[in-house]
Amino acid sequence: MSEAPPQDIANPQMSLTTKEGWRAFVDENPDPPPSLPSGTVLDEGELESYREARIDYHTRSVIVNTPTIRGVVTTGRKRIVLNRHQVSARRGLIVSGLAGTGKTTAITQLGKNVEQITRRRSPNAVGGLPVVFVTVPPAATPKMLAGEFARFLGIPLEHRMSQVQITNAVCDLLGKLGTTLVLVDEIHNLDLTTRNGAEASDQLKYLSERIAATFVLAGLDVETSSLFQGTRGQQIAGRYTVIPSRPFGHRIRADKESWQALVVTMENSLRRHAHRPGTLVAMADYLHERTGGLIGSLSQLIREAAVDAIDSGTEKITKRMLDEIELDHAVQKTRPDRPRVKYARRPKAA
């Protein structure tokens, strides 16, 4: 019996919309399960432990440095610097695009990068909170939006607290904690054509004035929503730069090379014993047709196939296995009956 391979199967990740969950996300840097040397013998318990460690590893999304992430991180850090001495009308970012194009991943990677840099610059600082992450609830009211900030901070909300009291408590605490970046996801839930949506938009603008931080928003197709309409919309449009988050193209050579690089990164992250390097790259055209170039759908497809390969004991991903995986409805409805693309087969080794 050999020594069991090391493992570190974390508990389910806490919500990013609490400071504890956010800090856990920033601290997270999971190592892949080690590869077992040829001839390693494990008993039944060790084998099951190793199997579960690999499954847990494949349930984690692989972070790929996509053009969207690079653009958001680079531009976001510039905005933070430019806003350093601004007392009002600070400039922000809006990441806008279809579902599954990596908007939330992009803004959270910006936040993670900013917080890690802040920690390195001030290693002895205690109690600061460089980054805040909240989501806009559906049909949000001004009080609900302020409540999301309070929930992130862990501010106890008494039943009779007014919107003004909650807002003041949030702004005062964030000022003391030195927050420099506020991330707001699901911004499309602000419907400026409704009274609640318009008032919640005003609340967000007020918070951006009271809190000396750069605001970065993300949402579905924000450019075509009501967010930029009317007087309120003009104010938002005048302060925020929109960074589009698009599906990967596949028409010109540069697009195909970018897509292949994405597939290569995801393939290299896999931990399966019978996998032949280059298998997924050879299916790059098929994978694009299957996912519509959406990074979220590609991640689901590859990770689910990897888990299936471990569970079934085959330890390899095949096209038949990929064909059997059901993807999200957004991808399925745009390609209901299209013929599958044939992919290049790897030549057999001599």
Rank of each mutant, 00 (worst) to 15 (best):
K112Q: 00
L190V: 07
S122M: 14
K256V: 02
G147R: 13
I117P: 06
V222F: 03
I243E: 03
L110G: 10
L220C: 08
R54W: 10
T75S: 09
N124F: 13
L220A: 10
V264G: 04
G197N: 08
G219S: 09
G293D: 08
R60P: 13
S258H: 07
R276D: 15
A218F: 08
G45H: 15
G292Y: 02
S162G: 10
P142T: 00
G154P: 05
T74E: 12
Q7E: 08
V242F: 07
V182K: 01
R54Q: 11
Q13I: 06
R276I: 08
R335E: 07
M266P: 09
K143H: 04
R195W: 05
V222A: 11
K143M: 03
K176G: 00
L173N: 07
G197A: 13
G71I: 01
T167E: 11
I295R: 06
V81T: 05
K103L: 14
E223V: 02
S15P: 09
E115F: 01
T17D: 06
P347V: 04
D27Q: 02
E223A: 11
R51M: 06
G71S: 13
E324V: 02
P336I: 12
P277Q: 09
L16V: 06
Y206M: 15
E304H: 03
V136I: 15
R90H: 05
T118G: 07
E46S: 15
R335M: 11
Q332L: 08
V72M: 02
Y57M: 02
A146W: 03
K256R: 09
T118E: 06
D191L: 14
A140Q: 05
R160V: 13
I107R: 07
L153T: 05
K205H: 07
P12K: 04
R84S: 06
A24C: 04
I302P: 06
W22Q: 00
A140G: 06
H329W: 15
G147V: 10
E199R: 12
K78Y: 11
M161G: 02
V136C: 10
Y50E: 00
V164D: 09
I69Q: 03
I236N: 11
G97W: 02
L207E: 14
L190C: 04
S88K: 04
G178R: 11
